[in-house]
Design a protein around this nucleic acid. Structure first.
Lengths: 195, 195
DNA sequence: TGTAAACTTGACGCGGTGTCAAGTGATGAA
DNA sequence: TTCATCACTTGACACCGCGTCAAGTTTACA
C-alpha cells in the first residue's frame, strides 16, 4: 500500500487485465482476480476499495504500459488536417483492442455504478477532445465539409470511433482489425471531408 | 395465465414499459414492476418466469402496439434502391426511441444472461436482414458504391443504425431525433452510394 | 357445494459486492 | 532482543436482486 506500485498491487492489476481481456461471457469477479493474482480477496479490497476503482486503475495501468501518451502525441504532431485526422484514427482505433476488455467491464457497470459512470465519461471525454482537435485542424485547412458544424462533426467522429462500434464490427460482424481501420478511415473521409 | 392477454399480464407489460422508458440511472427491478402494476412480485413470476422473459415479451408487446410490421412493410414497398434505403432508415431509426428503454435493459443483461443474449441477437438479426434487403436493392439499381462488398455494406448500415449509436448521438451528444434522422440518412448516402 | 385457476403472503437459497474483526509473519527501530 | 507496524490472511457477516417454494385467499363456474 505504501509504494503506489507495490508488487501485490501490480500483480492484481495484471491479473485483472488478463482476465478481462480473455473474458468469455460471464463477468470477471473480484474473487477471480484475487485468485489469479495469488492473493486473498480482501487484499484486493485493501488496494482497490470498490470494483470500479480496480477497473479504472487497470485502464490507467494499461495507458502506462502501452504508452498512450506517446501515441496521442504523435497524432498531434501532424500539421495537415487530413493527416492529423488519419493519425488520430490510427492512434485511438489501434488502441481500442488493447483496452476492450476493461472498457467492456466498465461499460457494463456504468448504468448502475456512479463511480464507474464518471470514470468512463472522463475517459470518453478525453477521446472526444482528440476528435475535436482533429476536426478543428480539418476546418482550419478548409477540408471540413460545409454540411456540419464543427461540433456536429466532432460528435460524428466521436461516435464513429466509439468502442461499441468497434465491438459490433469486429465481434458481431467478424471484421479484422485491419478491415476496421481501413473502413473507419474511409468512412470518416467520406462523411467529414469536402467533396 | 390461460388467455395469452389476460388483464394482469398486460398491466405488467405496460408497467415494465413505462418504468423502463423512464429509467433514470438505476436498474428497474422485478419488484418495481410488480408494485406499479399493482400486483405481487410473485404474480410477475407467474407470467414471466425470468426477467429476460419479461423484457422480451415487452419488446414483442411494443412491436404489436406500435404496429412494427406495418412500418417495415412500408419500407419494403419502395422499388428504387435509394428510396428503399431511406424508407428503411426512416422506419427503424424512427422506431428506436420507442424501444430504447427495453433495449437498454436487454443490452445490460446480454453479457451475463444467455436467454437475454439470444433474444437480443435475434432481434438485431431481424434488423440486419432489413439492412441486407436495402443494400441489395441498392446494388440491383447500380447505386451501391464499388468500394465494398454487399456484406460489408450491410455490416456498415447495420452498425450505423445500431441502438448504441442512436444512444450516443441523442443522449451523450444531445442531438434531437430529427437531427439524428437527417444525419443518419445523409451519412448513409455518403458512405454507401456511388459518387 | 366443491374444485380449480389466479393471485397473495412470507419465507428461503444463491451469488456477488463490500465490511469487519482478529490473527499471522516479516521488517526494522529502540 | 523485543516490540511495533505494515501487508496480508482467515472467516464471518450484511445487503441486494433474482428466483423458488409452500401454504393461504378469492373468484368463477359447474
Amino acid at each position: 500500500m505504501s509504494s503506489p506500485n507495490s508488487d501485490t498491487r501490480t500483480r492484481i492489476l495484471e491479473s485483472a487485465w488478463k482476465l478481462l481481456e480473455a473474458d468469455t461471457g460471464g463477468t470477471v469477479r473480484m474473487s477471480d482476480i484475487a485468485r489469479t493474482a495469488g492473493v486473498s480477496r480482501q487484499a484486493v479490497y485493501l488496494h482497490f476499495p470498490k470494483r470500479a476503482d480496480l477497473l479504472t486503475a487497470t485502464t490507467r495501468y494499461l495507458d502506462e504500459v502501452n504508452d498512450m501518451d506517446a501515441r496521442l502525441a504523435k497524432s498531434r504532431s501532424s500539421q495537415d488536417g487530413i493527416e492529423r485526422l488519419d493519425a488520430f484514427i490510427e492512434a485511438w482505433g489501434g488502441y481500442i483492442p488493447q483496452i476492450y476488455g476493461v472498457a467492456k467491464a466498465l461499460l457494463a457497470m456504468k448504468d448502475t455504478d456512479v463511480e464507474a459512470n464518471i470514470a468512463w465519461t472522463n475517459r470518453m471525454q478525453a477521446v472526444r477532445e482528440g476528435c475535436e482537435a482533429a476536426i478543428k485542424a480539418l476546418a482550419d485547412d478548409g477540408q471540413l465539409t460545409s454540411s456540419m458544424t464543427q461540433t456536429q462533426a466532432t460528435d460524428t467522429l466521436w461516435t464513429m470511433l466509439s468502442v461499441r462500434n468497434w465491438e459490433q464490427l469486429t465481434r458481431d460482424c467478424g471484421w479484422s482489425q485491419d478491415q476496421y481501420m481501413d473502413f473507419t478511415r474511409r468512412a470518416a473521409h467520406r462523411v467529414l471531408l469536402t467533396v
